[in-house]
Design a binder for these strands. Structure first.
Length: 816
RNA sequence: GGGCAAGUGGCGGAACUGGCAGACGCGCUGGACUUAGAAUCCAGUGGGGCGACCCAUCAGAGUUCGAGUCUCUGCUUGCCCACCA
């Protein structure tokens, strides 16, 4: 990396000086009582992994620029930071080093706090929180108990995702392509008794709530919608021959019911146990063998990679409407956890059933035909579209759509089912078989069973690692007898699902937060973070917030994040940064070599913030140059107490300079209020302004236009390069912080242009550029154009049949 | 396989609702200042043509007085979801 020691500007000492002064003065503290309108600006908090890199820096630089802009635009800005400190990476790292995770995490927090300050960020440090502190996780436990009281936290045995490497279970959302989201090992299925949160109870509301989230990226909303995966259809029961029991199936294509030629059941389905005694020994053995063969397969093999397999159970079911007798199969392609864990196989009208039936020689019965044809031809592929029913009893001739309604009514009338909705969303598994996390506040007593730890005994403190056995042995809070503590800890996503509320009231020891503070500050006006949390964190937080809203702990809107912004990744010289590549850019080296202001400007300037940015040393040096130019252009005016007010100037050169000042201000404000945050264009305007000032400092150093530009330049750059802005401000004779100033309000007179360049086209091709006064009338423009010799040449004496006039821009003459 | 997003100079990008394509920066070229370099400043920089002009926003078609922008088809890249009945 280049070392850029500038002649006059010593960024290292300037940056250090202002960081410590801002800290000393608590400059960015957000008072709870302020006459200004509130603005809650938040970035996703960092995981305490040890060191910040420029990926973090991009996130926090964007957020900080936004927070600083809004402060200067007159808002009481709450801009907090904290630490996501529990979890597996910390535990693993500590084990590797042979130290306590608490020690390791504390060291990381110290280091990362230093680095975040080093980035010149404007956080309110009085609100700092960390999840591994008892003051925080106490409320985690408290919230868990409230969820449990309302039936939203429960323990059950279920097939769950087990990561053999991390030695813990994972939530559905944490399994990516059948692999652990952290270590990428293949995930296995295990039957374990685990704690779940009943997020499915909120499925419909989480889905509907997305409609109102117009301040979120459409992509993110779509992904959540797909994750929740709502399907409308019907449930219906097939009776089992020789058993007083039914198998329920879910279908979105009830209209194809008469084409059902088999039932497909998940091998984990409870009906399997009922079937085994009533079928032949061979069939029962085959079922066992099949279930056993699947158990050893990973989730990945079980789903995407594996061929369709199955065994006949030997039993038959009866179609509730056609009364037809169809075989019951166990298959690997039916998911136990979706719908009812069983489906009706309709090979003629479903791709998957078709494949399975073809392999197994099961009959294929066509009951839907294309509305335009009556032909029933031998099927080579299933017809999966809606159509018209045939061979379906009374329902023959109906459209698919009508038949679905009519058949659902019929099924309901005979008490065998009815309309229903299914979701892909599963309950959220929060138990983790790991040490470094919030202890689940439950005690198991042989006499009283599962007993919640009473509120007044919270927090259940995380034991020292060597004392876990003592920790587990306890007494029952109800009967006082011997009891055992829950040994699992919570998924760290639990903690991060409500941290934005704790920032509002971080020292409250009577409640996780007070309703008054929530009412004052919520919602989060702008949330900024990576797109990798599209489903996980952002869905969980919405779920928690709706629960809090139902309890009355938060009021107003029942969505926590009003506007959401995902910043893009950052790569270096075209490649992903990673420790193994050795191309990670650290904060400390950047601060030392080029300075933080240069880094911040670079991150905002290279790309629009939502795009992937490519870090190059050449790119950085361009921003270093800009800072040096800014310094040099202001240097002659140090100590001269210039006044920043709209100057009244006449010369075109002066007007251009004044205009450039206001164009930059306009851009900064527009990018903020529109929430596009394309500060790359704002900084380009600042480049243009500084270019003009570089000329003016020699050509017209005493012009009021130049005086004004120098006077307001620190204000213009303050949100983006806060250190140099502060230093210039001080040297220009101010004693208070530039960050307490109001941003420059763009002046319409300064922005107005007196002379425009009128583009004259003949038949859509540019033939002349004519200088004209702004606001030139259509008639005048036409006269000017027709007077132009080149225009006349291209008209070639032909008649102007019509013309299009775009005021102050363009005149197109159409001639033939 | 399905869904979404995006393709503009050597590079990052600009061009808000269709109206001068390439702002700004990087890189490169030339010059000034220097013993020399660094730094800085000035000028130039999409392609072709001596020129007026012509050609250029992934490819092809369309709508329009006018298309990077709108519509259709295809190609490429990226991201997400992938047996959800």
């Amino acid at each position: 990396m280049l070392s850029m020691a500038a002649a006059g500007y010593d960024f290292q000492s300037v940056e250090r000086k202002w960081q410590s002064r801002w800290e000393r003065d608590a400059l960015y503290r957000a008072p709870n009582d302020s006459p200004k309108p509130k603005y809650y600006a938040m970035e996703m908090w960092p995981y305490t992994s040890g060191d910040l890199h420029v990926g973090h820096a991009k996130n926090y630089t964007i957020g900080d620029a936004v927070a600083r802009m809004l402060r200067m635009l007159g808002y009481n800005v709450l801009h907090p930071i904290g630490w996501d400190a529990f979890g597996l990476p910390a535990e693993n790292a500590a084990i590797e080093r042979g130290i306590d995770p608490a020690v390791w995490t504390t060291e990381n927090i110290l280091n990362m706090r230093r680095q975040i300050r080093l980035m010149g960020t404007s956080y309110d440090w009085s609100r700092e929180i960390a999840t591994c502190e008892p003051e925080y996780y106490r409320w985690n436990q408290w919230l868990f108990l409230r969820l449990r009281e309302h039936g939203l936290a429960y323990k059950r045995e279920a097939p769950v995702n087990w990561c053999p490497h991390d030695q813990t279970v994972l939530a559905n959302e944490q399994v990516i392509d059948g692999r652990c989201w952290r270590c990428e090992h293949l995930v296995e299925r295990r039957n374990l008794s685990q704690w779940f949160l009943r997020i499915t109870a909120y499925a419909e509301r989480l889905l509907n709530g997305l409609e109102k989230l117009t301040g979120w990226p459409e992509r993110t909303r779509t992904m959540q919608r797909n994750w929740i995966g709502r399907s409308e259809g019907a449930r219906l029961a097939f009776s089992i021959e020789g058993l007083d029991e039914n198998i329920e199936v879910f279908t979105t294509r009830l209209d194809t019911l008469f084409g059902a030629t088999f039932l497909a059941v998940a091998p984990e389905h409870p009906v399997v146990e009922s079937l085994k005694p009533v079928v032949s020994r061979e069939h029962a053995a085959a079922m066992d063998a099949f279930a056993e063969s699947l158990k050893s397969r990973s989730e990945l093999e079980r789903t995407s990679l594996m061929e369709k397999e199955g065994v006949f159970t030997g039993a038959y079911a009866v179609n509730p409407l056609s009364r037809e007798r169809i075989p019951i199969w166990l298959t690997n392609y039916v998911l136990a956890e979706y719908g009812s864990g069983a489906l009706m196989g309709v090979p003629a009208h479903d791709e998957r059933d078709f494949h399975f039936a073809t392999q197994r020689g099961l009959p294929i019965v066509e009951v839907i035909v294309s509305p335009n044809s009556d032909a029933v031809e031998p099927l080579e592929a299933p017809y999966v579209e809606d159509g018209r029913l045939i061979a379906s009893g009374d329902f023959s001739g109906m459209s698919s759509e009508r038949a679905r309604t009519a058949m659902a009514d019929r099924v309901a009338s005979i008490g065998m089912g009815g309309r229903s909705v299914a979701y892909k969303l599963r309950d959220w598994l929060i138990s983790r078989q790991r040490y470094w996390g919030t202890p689940i506040p439950i005690v198991y007593c042989s006499r009283c069973g599962e007993v919640p730890v009473p509120d007044d005994q919270l927090p259940v403190l995380l034991p020292v690692r060597t004392r876990i056995d003592e920790f587990l042995e306890t007494t029952c809070p109800t009967c006082g007898g011997p009891a055992r503590r829950e040994s699992d800890t919570m998924d760290t996503f639990f903690e991060s699902s409500w941290y934005f509320l704790r920032y509002l009231d971080p020292h409250n020891d009577r409640a996780p937060w007070s309703v008054e503070h929530a009412e004052r500050w919520m919602n989060v006006d702008q949330y900024i973070g990576g797109a990798e949390h599209t489903v996980l964190h952002l869905l969980y937080s919405r779920f928690f917030y709706k629960f809090f809203h139902d309890r009355g702990w938060v009021r107003g809107p029942n969505e926590p994040f009003e506007h959401l912004f995902h910043q893009g990744l950052i790569i270096r010289d075209g490649a992903r940064m990673s420790k193994s590549r050795g191309n990670v850019i650290g904060i400390d080296e950047t601060a030392e070599q080029v300075g933080i202001d240069a880094m911040r400007l670079f991150l905002l300037y290279v790309t629009p913030p939502e795009e992937t940015s490519n870090w190059t040393d050449e790119g950085i040096s361009g921003r270093v140059r800009l800072l040096n130019r800014i310094w040099r252009v202001c240097e002659p005016y140090f100590g001269s107490a210039l006044e920043g007010k709209m100057p009244n100037v006449e010369r075109a050169e002066e007007k251009a300079l004044v205009r450039a000042v206001h164009v930059a201000a306009r851009s900064a404000i527009d990018e903020t209020t529109s929430r596009r945050f394309h500060y790359n264009t704002t900084i380009a305007k600042l480049d243009e302004l500084v270019n003009l000032m570089t000329g003016a400092v020699t050509s017209m150093p005493e012009s009021p236009a130049m005086h004004d530009a120098v006077a307001v330049l620190p204000i213009l750059i303050a949100p983006f390069a806060p250190h140099i802005a502060e230093e210039l401000w001080e040297r220009l004779g101010h004693s208070a912080s530039v960050h307490l100033e109001a941003y420059l309000e763009p002046d319409e007179r300064a922005l107005a242009i007196e002379h425009i360049t009128l583009v004259v086209q003949v038949n859509g091709r540019v033939r002349a550029r004519i200088s004209a006064p702004a606001g030139v009338s259509e008639a005048e423009a036409l006269a000017l154009a027709l007077g132009d010799s080149n225009v006349r040449v291209h008209l070639g004496g032909k008649e102007v049949r019509k013309h299009i006039y775009v005021p102050d821009k363009l005149l197109n003459l159409v001639a033939a």
